[in-house]
Nucleic acid binder design. Structure first.
Lengths: 117, 117
DNA sequence: ATCATATGTGACCATTTGGTCACCTGTCAA
DNA sequence: TTGACAGGTGACCAAATGGTCACATATGAT
C-alpha cells in the first residue's frame, strides 16, 4: 500500500510540470526520439533542462529508454498513466453522481438567491 | 486553448502533493468538512498547513466552500478531475495499443538476449 | 588518431513550495 | 460584554525544484 503509493506519487509529481507534459506530447507525436531531437522541439530550454525532465519522467516509469549507437532513444510508456487514471476515476466517478444528489439536497435547505433585479 | 491549459495546470499541480490528495480522500470519505474537522484527521500538520493546501485545492476548482455560521465547509468537486482524466486517457489510451505494435516491430529489429545461463 | 557528435555528471543559483507562527477578524453562547 | 471557538492574513524560514554551466565520457566517421 505504501510502496505502491510511492510510484503513484512519482507519476503525479512528474505530470505536475507543464514542460514534462509537453515532452510526453512530443513522444506521443513521434515515439523513440533522442535527446537531441527533443531539444530541437524545445528551443527555450537547454539540453540539460530537457535531460533533467526526461530523467524525472523515466524515474516515474512514464518513459523508457534504449541506446542506439551514441543516441539514447526515449519511448513513451502510457501504462502508469492508465493505472493511475483508472484508480482515480474509479475513486471520483462515484462521488461525481453522488455530488449531484448532495447538491439537490443542499438546495432544498439553502436555496440560492435569484438575480431578480 | 491557452486559457484552458492554465486550469489544467492548476489541477495537475494541486494533485501533485500527497497531502492534498489525502485531503481529497478525506472529503471523499465524508463531504462538507470544516477546517477543524480536517485538522483532526491530519495531526502531523498545523491548521495553517491544512488551510494552505485547501486554498490550493480550491484555486484549482477541486474543492468548493460554503460558510455555515463560523465554520467553513469544504465540498469535493470531482468535475475537474473527470475532465482532465478524460482528456489524458483519450490522449494516451490510443498510444497504449500502438505502443504494443511499436514494441513488436522493434523486437523484430532488436531482439533482447535470452537469459540462457 | 583525430575530430565532431551525443550523452552524462556534479556543482551552482534563483525561485517556488511546504510549513510554521504571531496576530487579527468574525461568530456563537452565557 | 466577556470569553471561547473557528477561521484569515502576512511574514518568515528551510527544503525542493527548475534551470544553467563547465567539464567528462562515449561513439561514429574520416
Amino acid at each position: 500500500m505504501v510502496t505502491y503509493d510511492a510510484a503513484v506519487d512519482a507519476v503525479f509529481k512528474a505530470l505536475a510540470d507543464p514542460t514534462r507534459r509537453a515532452l510526453l506530447d512530443a513522444l506521443v507525436e513521434r515515439d523513440g526520439q533522442s535527446v537531441q531531437a527533443l531539444c530541437d522541439r524545445f528551443p527555450d530550454m537547454t539540453r540539460f533542462g530537457v535531460m533533467k525532465h526526461l530523467a524525472v519522467l523515466e524515474a516515474a516509469g512514464l518513459v523508457t529508454t534504449r541506446r542506439e549507437g551514441r543516441a539514447k532513444l526515449h519511448h513513451l510508456n502510457p501504462v502508469p498513466i492508465q493505472q493511475v487514471a483508472d484508480r482515480w476515476i474509479a475513486k471520483y466517478a462515484q462521488p461525481f453522481t453522488r455530488a449531484l444528489v448532495d447538491l439537490q439536497t443542499q438546495l432544498e435547505h439553502d436555496p440560492p438567491e435569484h438575480d431578480t433585479a
